[in-house]
């Protein structure tokens, strides 16, 4: 499954120091709830993204504990302060132990 998981993040390329920016994130993932049954009546095991985090230069922006009630292809939108140039690190934690990670650099200008 990990081969098809592709995180997508929208972060502006530049910001003024101390500016507030909007971050939008999306990752394609089935978010299997563990409640559904297949055509043979067997329960399909749960496999979801159970945690999402965003950090900037090592400081936390947001840390979300995710439950199966979050939709397929989980989407998160939030706002961050950019005190200096640096890098946003986004991580999604899968039930199967995989961690999908992506980064976005931002310049001050």
């Amino acid at each position: 499954m990990s081969g098809e998981v592709k995180p997508r993040v929208r972060v502006p390329g530049t910001a003024a120091a101390g500016e507030t920016i909007v971050i939008k994130t999306l990752i394609n993932h089935r978010m299997e709830t563990g409640l559904r049954k297949d055509s043979d009546g067997n329960t399909i095991p749960r496999q979801i993204i159970n945690r999402f985090t965003c950090e900037f230069n090592g400081e936390t922006v947001i840390d979300v504990a995710v439950e199966p009630a979050v939709s397929t292809n989980p989407y998160f939108e939030f706002e961050a302060v950019v005190p200096e140039a640096g890098e946003f690190v986004f991580k999604w934690y899968d039930d199967n132990g995989d961690v999908y990670e992506t980064t976005k650099a931002i310049e001050i200008g």
């Binding site: 507030t20 709830t33 979300v64 009630a69 979050v70 939709s71 939108e77 961050a80 302060v81």
Partner: peptide, 22 residues
């Protein structure tokens, strides 16, 4: 009933978030 818990760090510009739920 659980949907999620959003924890905000020092660099969150405001304590707000959007998502999509079932």
């Amino acid at each position: 009933p659980d949907v999620g818990i959003f924890r905000f760090g020092p660099l969150a510009a405001n304590q707000a978030a959007s998502t999509r739920i079932r």
